[in-house]
């Protein structure tokens, strides 16, 4: 089942899978159930993700497997896997630093530009195109980029 879920992309950041994003919290054996967790309370992709997981499970012959949403403990960016972080970077999104959830929500440390690697960057907007991202800009290559908010 995990293999099936590893092929389900996040609908808003299709470069990584729902497993790499850390929103597949667990797979229970009896009764067989996939536990999902939302990134943000209002994330509009939550329902789409559930449908995509349902579709993938049905397609792979796991039609009897249930899906349940769990809130506690709340999702944190620390649950994004190392492979997921690399894929985010390759996709042009600066991944959140490890342990970010333990510190402030603000991204006080400058993010490395995912295009040229420069550390000379600044925050343009605290919020970006989805609830989980902020908008940053590189001062060397001048490209704007998304940064995963520490959460």
């Amino acid at each position: 089942m995990r293999d099936v879920l590893c092929d389900v992309p996040d609908p808003e950041i299709p470069a990584i899978s729902v497993v790499e994003l850390g929103i597949v919290r667990a797979i229970e054996r009896s009764p067989p159930t996939v536990l999902l967790t939302p990134t943000y309370s209002g994330c509009p992709a939550t329902l789409v993700i559930e449908q995509a997981v349902r579709h993938a499970l049905d397609h792979a012959g796991f039609g009897e497997v249930g899906i349940r949403t769990v809130l506690s403990p709340p999702w944190t960016t620390d649950w994004i896997s190392d492979a997921g972080r690399e894929k985010l970077k390759a996709y042009g999104i600066a991944p959140p630093p490890r342990g970010a959830s333990m510190s402030s929500l603000r991204n006080r440390e400058a993010a490395a530009c995912p295009r040229c690697g420069s550390a000379a960057t600044h925050e343009v907007s605290r919020f970006g195109s989805t609830p989980c991202k902020a908008l940053w800009q590189c001062e060397d290559c001048l490209e704007p980029f998304d940064r995963f908010k520490c959460h």
């Binding site: 943000y40 309370s41 994330c43 509009p44 907007s125």
Partner: peptide, 11 residues
């Protein structure tokens, strides 16, 4: 974007 995101979280 910020205000829409705050609204989204709250909703």
């Amino acid at each position: 974007l910020s205000l829409a995101n705050l609204g989204l979280d709250l909703i």
